[in-house]
Design a protein around this nucleic acid. Structure first.
Length: 289
DNA sequence: CACTTGACCTGTCCGC
DNA sequence: TGCGGACAGGTCAAGT
């Protein structure tokens, strides 16, 4: 599923729903979904209280009172869905798209003391969840290599442009998707921001001017902030912590809109090509190679 | 080191 | 209706 705006939407939902909850029980299907020794789970997960829910890049961090954290990557199809116990009025959302959990894609189930649940579902099983000491989270390989948060107030367009220099000989799309350059960009917001900046996705990074980088920086931040405001993009499987879809796809200009008209050119169709191994959507008039 | 490709999985859609 | 292949919001480990 999820790029930065979707993961941030899940984070905000979980923040409202699970902080203060005490974990009563946890079940998982395979070691890959939750590769922790039973002893760790028993000692540092069961009975722990949720203190905070954080995000770094596309990774969610659930901090526990045991000084351990759950580190979660949803990859393509992961979902974290909270279901309250109606007896306690915790509120299973009435418009949840999920009728009954767990289901066949459920990989991990947490039960809280008040009778509510948190389900980790993942159709394609690419996602993962680990339990580890909070203090060690910054040491994991991904955290060491991942680039800056693009929406932070003190992240400037000059820093943004500078980060791309390490990928000067590749396409701008491949560089945008590289998490070590800038954190959190995926296929949807790469295409949307490149259209906004009128850049062809195959343009080599080294050929892009400072003015173009400044425009791309502004477009990326604008499109990601709008997507967060709209609760993310629900293209196929993405839903938030309350089981609801996001509406950014109603505002998308090119992503998955091949055959429809470019918003800037009512007589030009959006086309689809493959760049950096990913489906890529452009306006052939706005974005020239 | 920089860069590309295939692998990891299941489900869906599209053409024959 | 069935079947094969391509494709789907993301990283990794390999290969050049």
């Amino acid at each position: 599923m999820p790029e930065l705006p979707e993961v941030e939407t899940v984070r905000r939902g979980l923040e409202k729903l699970i902080i203060g909850q005490v974990i009563k029980e946890a079940k998982h299907d395979t070691e890959k979904s939750f590769p922790n020794a039973p002893a760790d789970v028993k000692e540092f997960l069961i009975g722990a209280t949720v203190l905070d829910v954080r995000r770094r890049a596309k990774v969610l961090l659930i901090d526990l009172s045991s000084e351990y954290s759950l580190v979660i990557h949803l990859k393509m199809t992961g979902q974290l869905v909270f279901v309250g116990d109606e007896r306690f009025g915790a509120g299973h959302p009435s418009d949840s798209l999920i009728n009954e959990l767990p289901d066949k894609s459920t990989r991990v189930t947490f039960e809280f003391e008040d009778g509510s649940y948190l389900f980790f579902n993942d159709q394609r099983k690419f996602g993962w969840m680990r339990l580890m000491p909070t203090i060690e989270v910054p040491n994991i390989n991904f955290m060491q290599k991942v680039g800056p948060e693009p929406l932070e107030a003190d992240f400037t367009w000059q820093q943004f442009a500078e980060r791309f220099m390490r990928r000067a000989r590749t396409s701008i799309k491949a560089a945008l998707l590289d998490q070590t350059v800038v954190a959190g960009v995926g296929n949807i917001y790469a295409d949307e921001s490149l259209w906004g900046a009128k850049l062809h996705p195959k343009r080599l990074v080294g050929s892009i001017t400072k003015a173009e980088f400044k425009k791309l920086y502004i477009e990326l931040r604008t499109v990601m902030n709008l997507a967060i405001e709209k609760g993310g993009s629900s293209n196929q499987t993405y839903i938030n912590a309350e089981g609801k879809k996001g509406s950014y796809m109603d505002f998308a200009r090119v992503f998955r809109r091949e055959g429809l008209m470019c918003p800037r050119h009512p007589d030009v169709e959006i086309i689809k090509l493959k760049v950096a191994g990913r489906g890529t959507h452009i306006c052939p008039l706005c974005q020239v190679e």
